[in-house]
Amino acid sequence: MKRKELIVTAINSGTVIDHIPADKVFQVIRILDLELSQDEIYFGTNLVSQKYGRKGIIKISQKYFKPQESDKIALVAPTATLIEIKDFEVVRKNNVNIPDKIERIAKCFNPNCITNKENVPTKFTVLQTDGQIKLSCHYCEKTTSQNNMVFF
């Protein structure tokens, strides 16, 4: 008999971030500051996915993401799906969208950029070339690649 069970425990209410690239789960946890959360969190990685081969998943109780947080997730895990749950029912399901422009959520990689020297909020245009996401700084015009992205 085939055994059907959830590998990662269901949550009553909150958000499931599904289809995270397997190697990005810990980065997603970090950028969302989930380390500091007091809510129940379950996560798994290297799980079998029909769509992507291997994937990661994070389930966070009582948490619903704001657009800015969803933008952050998109930059690190562009394939992610956000599933909002209330009383064990799915109430909303969205793929994250990579934004065209972002403000205040990431740092510029260039140490000599004005945003790293004075109190100036960062602004970037998001570039997508050859499957890579890069941030082009509105001020210093340098590009920050995915490996060098640091979020506030």
Partner: peptide, 9 residues
Amino acid sequence: HSVEGSARY
């Protein structure tokens, strides 16, 4: 100015 982006700002 020596800082990049200073003129835009």
